[in-house]
């Protein structure tokens, strides 16, 4: 592991533990890990919890307006986390916003995704946006793994700039079953319920 990656993992272990709890044995098959989103450390927490083997081919989906800012953050995003950038604000951007994510899945990578698109204030996730549904339809073979981040909203709640140490377990659930001809709304609600069920 490269030095900066080791430092980031060490910081996450010290601050929040970020230990994984797997409901089913982890698999290195292409997966989308989708989680509730409450703090700026969420991406790092899941990344640290995955462990070196799964981490090697998992790419976090990162909002360009947050992660592509400042030399250090950009360096971590591109060189350490190997993120896939997405544009949260659509003004002035043409084309399919999911194209970079689809490309990453096509090359066999797994993704870390926060389907709410933004951080919430409470522990439970709000409504999911449709990106997860669109990817699920396009990639029927990919495993959709719900993830619940416990306590991250206490460690670094929205509006704070420094974390406090609180033990945060990363709970990985069983992959979502695939149901054919499910409506977008029903799928997104089922996916959200799968994350809530891990709480």
């Amino acid at each position: 592991m490269r030095p900066l990656a080791a430092v980031l993992c060490g910081v996450m272990r010290t601050l929040v533990g970020a230990h994984a709890h797997w409901q089913e044995p982890p698999s290195s098959a292409a997966s989308i890990y989708f989680a509730n989103h409450t703090s700026h450390m969420d991406t790092l927490a899941i990344w640290a919890a995955l462990g070196p083997r799964l981490r090697a081919h998992t790419r976090p989906v990162a909002a360009r307006d947050y992660w592509d800012r400042g030399a250090l953050r950009r360096h971590v995003a591109l060189r350490v986390l190997n993120v896939v950038f997405v544009e949260r604000h659509r003004e002035g951007h043409e084309g399919d916003p999911l194209a970079p994510l689809a490309a990453a899945l096509e090359e066999g990578s797994s993704l870390i995704l926060f389907p709410e698109g933004t951080r919430g204030t409470g522990p439970l996730p709000g409504a999911f946006r449709s990106g997860l549904y669109n990817l699920a339809v396009r990639f029927p073979q990919v495993r959709l793994v719900p993830v619940y981040l416990e306590n991250m909203h206490r460690s670094m709640p929205k509006g704070t700039f420094v974390p406090i140490p609180v033990v945060c377990t990363v709970r990985f659930g069983a992959p979502l079953a695939r149901i054919t001809e499910e409506t977008r709304e029903a799928f997104l609600e089922r996916a959200r319920a799968a994350v809530v069920a891990l709480a």
Binding site: R154, P157, G159, I164, P165, V166, V167
Partner: peptide
Amino acid sequence: LREFVTLTPTKRADHVPLF
């Protein structure tokens, strides 16, 4: 202390004191 705080219900307003 991290264990104690994890199990103790604190609120957003306790963020700075805990820090």
